[in-house]
Amino acid sequence: MNRLHKITKLSLVQKMYLLLFCFVLYGWYKNAFVPYFNHYTNFSQLILILLYPLCGLGIGALFDLLFKTTHFYTNKFYGLLFSLILPISTNICYFLFFLSLLLFINTILISRKNLEFNFLVFGKLLFVLFLFLQHNYGYANGLEESHMFIYSYLDGIFGHNVSAIFTSNVFFILLSFGVLFFDSYYKKEIPFYSYGFYIITLVFYAFLKSDMNFILNNLFSSTILFVIVFLAPLSCFSPYTKKRTFIYCILFGGTILPFSLLINFYEGVYIALALSNSVVVLLNAIQKQMVKKRLKE
């Protein structure tokens, strides 16, 4: 039985689908249409690039159908999201294999055992490591690799920058945040705090090395902003109490820059998120044990 008076509106996931669709369109334009138009890639790329989100959705839907998922965030949604954050050098076969494996782990282990590990982030890191070991790691498309065009900061904000396949448009990310901000189920405080702490670390860095070019590049980095707006606040993998949210945001926002400097800018933000997610999972487990103990007493 449910309380029937709750008036249904467009749900958070439906909003996210609509927004991610915009990213897919822009990603196609930037990574397939423009390079093809400038003769940096062949015609097949125009179709091939769309296979990533389509396969992501398809495999996700298949898993939902097979395992009868009753989650608010379906495997279909995760499949789509995972397909957006990959390097452009990703081989479609590897992608399909990895995604299936991840969704299997999610369905069998994470969802059923009620675990809070952000499997998309851990999966992405493992996948990138795999690509790196295969010497097939790269975020720049043919056009970007050629260094034929010099982009301004404004170009970068409107999507002409090196980033994951479908996440390069900063303007869309900010627009998405504006839309999601008004959804009551979106954890808006996480992007706010995380970005705040990230800016603080950038300011500290600016004091150490007065490299304005570096700071501007990182302040509006689409990779970082996409993770902050879409991946970090995913309800299932983020904390739900105020204190833990604050810890999560400090850890996440505060470690983006160090990890980015230490490893690279495309993966640093994911490592930071994986770390903060793990800490929150640990804190949740401790709290659960404590409550159980108290109840036994």
């Binding site: 449910n2 709750k6 965030y73 904390p239």
Partner: peptide
């Protein structure tokens, strides 16, 4: 009658946030 499908908890924390007694229904 308008049955809504019960889904898995997404840990949004809204129940804790709104609880006037500051209880933890999620836990």
């Amino acid at each position: 009658k308008q049955m809504r499908k019960k889904r898995e908890c997404i840990k949004c924390g809204k129940c804790i946030l709104l609880c006037p007694k500051h209880a933890n229904p999620l836990m």
